[in-house]
Write a protein that binds this DNA or RNA. Sequence first.
DNA 1: TCTGGGGTCCTAGGACCC
DNA 2: TCTGGGGTCCTAGGACCC
Length: 358
Amino acid sequence: MASWVLHVDMDQFIAAVEVLRRPELAGVPVIVGGRGDPTERAVVSTASYEARAFGIGSGMPLKVAARKAPEDAVFLPVDHAAYESASAEVMSALRALPGVVLEIIGWDECFLGVETDDPDAVARAAQVAVLDATGLHCSVGIGDNKVRAKIATGFGKPRGVFRLTEENWFAVMGDRSTRDLWGVGPKVQKRLAAHGIATVRELADADRELLTAEFGPRMGVWYHGLGSGVGPATVDDAPWVARSHSRETTFAHNLTTSEQVEAALSELAGHAFDDCAADGRPVVRVHVKVRYAPFETRTFGRTLSRPTTDRGEVIETALALGATLDRQREVRLLGVRAEMSVPEGGAATERTPVRGRI
DNA sequence: TCTGGGGTCCTAGGACCC
DNA sequence: TCTGGGGTCCTAGGACCC
């Protein structure tokens, strides 16, 4: 029997959860984001397929989405609790599949590791299990490692299954843009293009020395392998260990006084600390992030002289960092991040350097 | 046209130590 | 006058993902 990695990804997860509890929304363009008010500063979390047909997608400002949306479109507020509970049902249905190792990588997606000679059957079984348990549909990518499984899922959407392995990698991906690779965003795409590397095949054929000179020893090697679809294949079911917690807020009206900034920092730092405290681990470092109007972001950090469980100390540190902000400029967004100490024997498994939760 | 909030990991460069 | 090399820690910033 061979080892396979399956990537399970829910179809339009957030919009689907909303439709599930409000069946009258079936077939309607549904746009979930912010507080559901398209006149506010917020972006689209998920748009239903009906809404996507109008060019509305994740990350788009709600104001822009409102302009594109038809009259019968429905804007809904984000309801984290509802998605978390739906997510838990999905994961528990998948975990119950025989012989699988489950690694959760987000609200609406996970990897399954399985030993089988018929991965398609496992993929179909996963889809049935999720649908039976929750009424929600998903797509499944099958791969010989995490990178190929993850990319395969996109070809299976919606409600489908797609297999991507060493055998068909170049046939499927070779002529596509490097941007289609997981972990290559607009900046990296541009830097690669400056070296004449536009396609996946060109990345695979590129000189490794050139890539390490451009991106550093780790990322250079990672990108080079990515061109050939190389990646880790170990699925790890160890519980997730958060490295940090943050709270941030975008203000409907920009802040202009020190008093406003201090009040906001105290509150955010307190919440961030509380999230760390709930994990039972001390804070080792505090960051403050500020977005000046119109859109320039700065971050400041300070490492504490020793790990602390003192809420007041974390707040004081955030305020001290906040004191260095430019008082002449309006503040559009503030955030506080608290990094925690790493627990004994913390996650030591192979990780992909794809940023985000993986 | 207007750009959220929650995360993780990598890199460059300076400080500092031996 | 010329001033190593390696290692670690820290800061700041960058990039990406969901």
